[in-house]
């Protein structure tokens, strides 16, 4: 089936099987490999993207379900001139990453969180990111990054 979407502002289309997961549509068909697969079982959040502005685990959605949707992946966060999104800049400044595997998903989940709650408390950041696992940082600097991006730290 033909799945047409808008990804990072550009009209995209690919012919996929109905069973194709959104994460494979993005990585294998559109070659946007910034979105990672960590667990493949809906737990880790490494595959988080935005669908119509809201965070979603792309390993738990069919490409078909995204037909007509506006999708944003980590590749679409920085401006065309390379200026980082404030959340990316905050992760860099606060050392919010070590190996970086969880980072695309963390940035997508955290930016969705700030859209819904622009001035979260530390506790709200921790709860807001409970669907995203990091094996390296111990979360401390991730939380600091998100609070910095929100202007609260």
């Amino acid at each position: 089936m033909q799945v047409e979407t808008t990804v990072n502002g550009k009209a995209m289309s690919a012919d996929v099987e109905p069973r194709t997961l959104l994460v494979h549509y993005l990585r294998d068909e559109l070659e946007l490999t910034g979105t990672n697969v960590g667990c493949d079982t809906s737990s880790c959040g490494a595959c988080t993207v935005h669908i119509d502005g809201e965070s979603v685990k792309s390993c738990t959605m069919l490409a078909a379900q995204a037909r007509g949707a506006e999708i944003t992946t980590i590749e679409g966060m920085a401006s065309a001139d390379g200026t980082l999104h404030p959340m990316q800049a905050a992760f860099m400044e606060c050392h919010g990453l070590q190996c970086g595997y969880c980072t695309p998903g963390m940035v997508m989940a955290a930016s969705s969180l700030l859209k819904e709650n622009p001035n979260p408390t530390e506790q709200e950041v921790r709860e807001g990111l409970e669907g995203n696992l990091c094996r390296c940082t111990g979360y401390h600097n991730i939380v600091k990054s998100v609070l910095t991006a929100a202007g609260g730290a």
């Binding site: 809906s42 959040g45 988080t48 669908i51 809201e54 965070s55 979603v56 685990k57 738990t60 959605m61 989940a109 969705s112 969180l113 819904e116 807001g128 990111l129 409970e130 669907g131 995203n132």
Partner: peptide, 9 residues
Amino acid sequence: VGDPSVRHR
């Protein structure tokens, strides 16, 4: 229920 990404869907 779950986490925010789950609750969006």
